[in-house]
C-alpha cells in the first residue's frame, strides 16, 4: 500500500477521515503532490527536510 493509498483509505473511513495527514515523502514529483492534494492531504513535506519545516507544517495543521 502506498502513502497515497493509505491517505485515500483514511479519507474514506468515517471514523478516521477528520484526522490531519501530513505526507513526508521522497517521491518528489509534481504529479505525486497533485495526487496527494486530490486525495485530501493536509500538508506535504519533501525529504530531506529540517526540523523547522516539520514544525512549520505541523503549526499550520494545528493552528
Amino acid at each position: 500500500m502506498t502513502g497515497i493509498d493509505m491517505l485515500r483509505a483514511i479519507r474514506a473511513d468515517e471514523k478516521l477521515k477528520a484526522i490531519p495527514v501530513l505526507m513526508v515523502t521522497a517521491e518528489a514529483q509534481q504529479s505525486n503532490l497533485v495526487e496527494a492534494v486530490q486525495a485530501g492531504v493536509s500538508n506535504y513535506i519533501v525529504k530531506p527536510f529540517t526540523a523547522e519545516t516539520m514544525q512549520e507544517k505541523l503549526g499550520k495543521i494545528f493552528k
Binding site: 518528489a28 514529483q29 509534481q30 503532490l33 497533485v34 519533501v46
Partner: peptide
Amino acid sequence: KTAMKQQVADDIL
C-alpha cells in the same frame, strides 16, 4: 527534472 524542492512543493500547495 523529477527532483522537487520543498519551496516548489509549497508553491504548488
